[in-house]
């Protein structure tokens, strides 16, 4: 920067009349910088265009084509895929009604993702608070412990949960041995199992951003709040929560979005009976042989996520604006 600022100066001083013919170093530097920036972003840009936007465009096109008899698409325009997302034609009298099966899956996905996010907040908040209040040299150890499950394959972790909650699993065996129950409690293949699995899988994604926010929290403010007659609950509500809100929002997004599209966990723990959106989409590309519907469902999921994000971001920026 310094060189850029000073280099034209001597020339101007020496020969002010030459300025129109002289070289404009600032403009050259700016052009060079723009070229460098472009070179730097090009790999990311390439991946985004080819790897993400490309398939999206393909999906969008497929959603407006007709389904082939054995999967794939037929290249003729059709809105059948989009029609089937929310509506269905009755098999016998051709009346049009809502696709109850699809809607209930949408509803289950949204509510399970929401409840999982809430559960992650409930479990993640104290965890993050605990870590943030440890002496600095201990914190990385605790963070490491929280992220350990992350280094294990998702499928293995999910089967591990299955082992714990199935009818002959750890929990039921222990309860029956203790004589508390005579029949095993059906936990596997329920919404509870899916929720448990997703909470377990995504908890680190809540803890990490929450911790990052709490680490920056000045705990003297907590003392000041206690000093000013605020109970623990009021201190949490009035001081800690507003100050760690950015982490809470980031964590919620990181948990809610993948939960909404979760595939493996509901597949294994829901046993294929309790479908979520991810499973429904997979079904259309597999056994259902209805690629346009699958494509339309995928884009619907994307739109739901984007709307949810927009609401979050708008809330966050309004808060941020008020804070700044």
């Amino acid at each position: 920067m310094a060189a850029q600022d000073t280099s034209p100066a001597p020339e101007e001083v020496a020969a002010p009349t030459m300025a129109p013919h002289g070289t404009d170093y600032a403009a050259i530097a700016m052009r060079r910088e723009r070229r460098n920036n472009l070179a730097l972003v090009s790999p990311a840009l390439l991946i985004l265009v080819v790897g993400a936007s490309g398939p999206l465009v393909v999906m969008l096109i497929y959603s407006f084509l007709a389904a082939g008899d054995y999967g794939g698409v037929v290249w003729e325009f059709s809105t059948q895929g989009w029609f089937q997302v929310f509506l269905q034609r009755d098999m016998f009298d051709d009346t049009i009604g809502f696709a109850d099966a699809h809607l209930s899956i949408f509803w289950r996905s949204l509510s399970l993702a929401f409840i999982t996010t809430v559960l992650c907040v409930i479990f993640g908040f104290p965890t993050a608070y605990f870590i943030a209040t440890r002496p600095p040299e201990q914190r990385s150890l605790w963070l490491f412990l929280v992220t350990i499950p992350f280094w294990t394959n998702l499928l293995i972790r999910t089967y591990a949960i299955m082992e714990v909650i199935r009818n002959e699993g750890l929990v039921n065996t222990a309860l029956m041995k203790a004589g508390l129950i005579s029949q095993p409690i059906q936990m596997l293949y329920t919404d509870f199992a899916i929720m448990l699995g997703m909470t377990y899988v995504y908890l680190p994604l809540m803890v990490l951003p929450l911790y990052a926010s709490m680490e920056k929290l000045d705990f003297r403010l907590v003392e000041a709040s206690y000093d000013l007659y605020a109970s623990r609950m009021n201190t949490l509500r009035r001081i800690i929560l507003p100050l760690v809100k950015p982490g809470l929002i980031a964590g919620s997004i990181l948990v809610f979005v993948p939960c909404l599209g979760a595939y493996v966990t509901p597949r294994v723990l829901g046993g294929g009976k309790r479908l979520m959106l991810g499973n429904l989409i997979e079904l259309q590309f597999g056994q259902g042989r209805n690629w346009p519907l699958g494509a339309a469902l995928s884009i619907t999921l994307l739109l739901i996520v984007m709307v949810a994000l927009l609401i979050y971001v708008r809330n966050a920026s309004r808060q941020g604006g008020a804070h700044g």
Partner: peptide
């Protein structure tokens, strides 16, 4: 208490 760092709520 008046804290050394003031500890005003930001």
């Amino acid at each position: 208490t008046v804290f050394q760092s003031y500890a005003l709520f930001p």
